[in-house]
């Protein structure tokens, strides 16, 4: 049985949860069990962890990407 962890910045509404449930079932079959965690550090968006694969759609990671680009990016 697949264990899937959904981490979000704020509490998800029932409508959002059912959307996620549908997408997960489509990809991993009905055997998937979803557990949720709220982590304000994400700022916005959510991350979905399947086993050791993590799909990171949080605002935090996008901001980190900008930080990295500005720190290392070359200005032409």
């Amino acid at each position: 049985m697949m264990k899937i962890l959904v981490t979000s910045a704020i509490e998800l509404t029932a409508a959002q949860m059912s959307k996620i449930q549908k997408a997960v079932t489509k990809k991993y079959g009905s055997e998937a069990k979803i557990s949720t965690v709220v982590n304000p550090k994400l700022i916005g968006g959510l991350t979905i962890t399947v086993g050791s694969r993590q799909f990171d759609g949080s605002l935090r990671s996008k901001i980190d990407q900008i930080k990295k680009m500005l720190g290392e990016g070359t200005i032409s």
Partner: peptide, 14 residues
């Protein structure tokens, strides 16, 4: 610079 950033969902192994 900012416009160049692709805001796709990243996938990583954790």
């Amino acid at each position: 610079l900012i416009g160049d950033i692709a805001f796709d969902t990243t996938e990583k192994e954790v």
